[in-house]
Amino acid sequence: MASSLKSAALLEQMKLHFATEEGKKLTKKIGLVYQLNIAPKKLGVDEEIYVVDLKEGKVTKGPYDGKPDATFSFTDSDFLAMASGKLNPQMAFLRGAIKIKGSISAAQKFTPDIFPKPSKL
């Protein structure tokens, strides 16, 4: 309950997902490191930084130690929308809703299917 971001909950689930067969396949398939700067409301304001490491199969809080393959800046709700397939990252990028630094081919592999879907009570 440390973070008030909705994205944090999803990333927690991602942690667990990496423990499964399917999660392990992801690291083989993608093998890249993404840094996510997630802001509660406005891009760049009060960002929380997470690293989704698809090389090692882990999610950590705080900036990456080294150079991530791609760094994304999202708002909380845009990240969720992207992870659930509601928002196309390429179009969001063009609209300025997402900022991307780093390799574009790495960025293009950042797609909704790498995230587990939360089940509903």
């Binding site: 689930q13 667990l16 997902h17 499964t20 587990p116 939360p118 089940s119 509903k120 009570l121």
Partner: peptide, 14 residues
Amino acid sequence: WNKLGATQANSVQS
């Protein structure tokens, strides 16, 4: 039953 299932799914016991 659904709540139980969803919880199990979220804790990767699909």
